[in-house]
Design a protein around this nucleic acid. Sequence first.
DNA 1: CGCCTTTGACCTGCGC
DNA 2: GCGCAGGTCAAAGGCG
Length: 231
Amino acid sequence: MSSISQAMLSQGLFEDQELSTQMGFFSFPPNLTISTPPFGYHQSLKTLITMPPSLAADAPTSLTETLLSSATQKQKDHITSHFGGPQLLSLQRSSANLRAWGEVNEYCRGSKRSDGDDHDHLRVSAKKMKKIKSRRKVREPRFCFKTMSDVDILDDGYKWRKYGQKVVKNTEHPRSYYRCTQDNCRVKKRVERLAEDPRMVITTYEGRHIHSPSHDEDDTQAPSHLNYFFW
DNA sequence: CGCCTTTGACCTGCGC
DNA sequence: GCGCAGGTCAAAGGCG
């Protein structure tokens, strides 16, 4: 089990949820995907919520409502006490990410619902999926989360090599591109600062590591900087 | 010397 | 088809 999952479970937030450490997916609440980044991430990381772009279009409002409607009182209390209210992860809505979500949807379809409710808005539309499948290039699944930190690089236990930096339109902060230095491991990550709030660092992981972290952090060790995760 | 970052050039996908 | 923006490459230089 990942250290993140342990952290979540230790807080009693998702104690009833079945955990797949291999995929890192939770299924809570039923129509959202709550996931941990791939196993081996830094113990200070907690959790993140991801969702189909179709639902993300209404985020954070719809997600907040959905989350709160199905959250236990304990979870609601946690949201209020830790975040001063339901603040939620911002999500990528780029078309490129649809490809990743196509894969996520395929995975999630394994636990197909039978309640007959209209959940179409939770999935990429058939038209979009057709367009996705018509594309040759298939992207790895992505995990995106936001932290409040003075430093851009979070210690996630893996070694990374920077291979590019790009100034993104409408932002004054450049986006950095990193690749895992492990042989044959093709995991990449992007790091950028939020235009609206430069204190926030957005980290996007693409792909899954095929190896263990290069060094194991002591789970009891305090983080060297403040990570403030939305979920 | 090896590994890393920097940075301009190039490639690719997408919208119009 | 074209232009733009994001993503990647690779040479050059820095650092331990």
